[in-house]
Write a protein that binds this DNA or RNA. Structure first.
Length: 459
DNA sequence: GCATGATCATGC
DNA sequence: GCATGATCATGC
């Protein structure tokens, strides 16, 4: 039974404004605070998942019931609380992806995007952004911004078109009996992120006997950053956007089409074609060339950024083999030993696992010419880590964590340990060291995807 | 040819 | 000043 009625969006907005600049501790009376502390206990006061519930119950004084309906039934508003962090460069950034409702594998295969339960529940979402800080409990988080997200009206058309394609990609994968192979990296803006109390929970899927992890729809962290920048911080309008005649062309196609025009051309011919001169001695020569080929106005491409896609230039030997492995950022020895591979209700999944599940790559592939210093553009390929190989990546990670925990840095898994990934130094030089759990200092290292593995992925 | 360690250039 | 992406160098 609602003690306050919210008939319209305006009613909700008016009340929500009182939250901004404050936290629950300031806004609620002592009795409520007592009640909260008793009911959910000190430990759970650190669980962000509870904040949404508390805001609904104690601040808005509503009790959402049916999960298929919006939290504010009459006003048809869905409420979300989500953390942001202060960042030196960009003022505020999303701390996490924005998670929506669970994907019901059984039912969703019968839906279309237009009449999807996702759109129904989320046609109007009030997002309350709160400032996250390491030490605080959830009733101390201060709310900073609010934003009405209306999928049908407040998302740019071209992004909405991509979100629709993402939704369809996810649903089709379930229709093919591959729910267990879903990965957040499969899609661009809307992802299927794992969501469960721990990594052992699995559920049935309708078209395969293989159990799948529970997943929910989510807007990718990088896309939320874009929303924050553009909607909340009156950010600069998109100067890094690609120019296009038809906004309905998916970015994926736009980029591969643009690049395919240069197929089999040498770097010199390509420069002549687009009338530029780049310094070949520059270490990022090929990367700059690739950006020019795509038609990027700067070294960033908004469409890729929003989708968490990183452009990687790959150079094959003239024989077609790939010599160089692909690196991830270096890890912190003292942190990695406290991580768990999968998620649990309290811990996020390990950084490496997260990188594999969320990152997408745009490989721009060149090949060296025999007896010449010319390179030839071969192809562009979008790629993300296939979930078929995730257990092998886990094996490498687990072995690494064990070595680090034992202080056996010489035993870290080299390229022969696995055909998927390995650990290698990755610092500025041999003196670029960081502290280990044993208190010693070791050269920075990172995970790398094996060159042979990427070579196969490119075929 | 490959494994492994080391380093460089750039831009944030 | 440092992370990031992209090699380079060496030795077997």
């Amino acid at each position: 039974m609602d003690s306050i009625r919210y008939i319209s969006k305006d009613d909700v907005t008016r009340r929500a404004r009182d939250l901004l600049g404050h936290n629950l501790r300031e806004l609620l009376n002592d009795k409520d605070i007592d009640d909260i502390e008793k009911k959910i206990g000190h430990y759970n006061l650190r669980r962000k998942g509870y904040l949404g519930e508390l805001v609904e119950k104690y601040f808005f004084q509503i009790t959402p019931g049916n999960i298929s309906e919006a939290d504010f039934r009459e006003a048809k508003v869905e409420l979300k609380t989500t953390p942001i962090k202060e960042s030196a460069k960009r003022k505020f950034v999303a701390k996490e992806r924005l998670v929506f409702s669970m994907i019901n594998y059984e039912n969703i295969i019968h839906e279309t995007w237009e009449d999807s339960s996702f759109l129904k529940k989320n046609s109007s979402v009030l997002i309350l952004f709160y400032l996250w800080k390491e030490i605080e409990t959830i009733i101390d988080y201060k709310f900073k911004f609010m934003h009405f997200l209306d999928f049908k009206n407040s998302i740019p058309d071209e992004d909405l078109a991509q979100i629709k394609r993402d939704w369809e990609y996810i649903v089709n994968k379930i229709r093919e009996g591959k729910a267990h192979l879903l990965s957040e990296g499969d899609t661009f803006y809307l992802g299927a992120c794992t969501k469960s109390a721990n990594s052992f929970i699995v559920r049935d899927q309708p078209l395969s006997k293989i159990k799948a992890k529970p997943r929910a729809f989510s807007l990718k962290q990088q896309y939320v950053n874009f929303l924050i920048n553009n909607r909340l911080l009156s950010g600069q309008d998109s100067t890094n956007k690609l120019e296009k005649n038809d906004v309905n062309v998916p970015v994926e196609k736009l980029i591969t089409d643009r690049l395919s025009k240069f197929q089999n051309k040498t770097d010199i011919d390509i420069q002549n074609d687009i009338d530029i001169r780049l310094n070949k001695k520059n270490k990022s020569y090929k990367r700059m060339l690739a950006l020019k080929m795509i038609g990027a106005k700067s070294n960033k491409i908004e469409e890729l950024q929003k989708a968490n896609i990183t452009l990687r230039v790959i150079t094959l030997e003239h024989t077609g083999t790939l010599r160089e492995s692909i690196s991830f950022p270096s890890f912190d020895y003292t942190q990695i030993i406290d991580e768990a591979w999968g998620e649990s209700g309290y811990e996020r999944m390990s950084t490496f696992h997260e990188q594999l599940e969320t990152n997408k790559f745009l490989f721009v592939v060149f090949q060296k010419e025999k007896n010449s210093n010319l390179i030839r553009f071969k192809k562009a390929q979008f790629w993300n880590f296939p979930m078929n190989d995730i257990l092998e990546a886990k094996r490498v990670w687990e072995y690494s964590v064990r070595c680090i925990g034992n202080g056996d840095y010489k035993d870290l898994p080299g390229i022969r340990f696995s055909n998927v990934a390995h650990v290698r130094p990755h610092g500025r030089n041999a003196n670029d060291k960081i502290k280990t759990p044993q208190g010693t200092y070791e050269v920075k290292r990172s995970f790398w995807l094996n060159a042979k593995y990427i070579e196969r992925a490119l075929k």
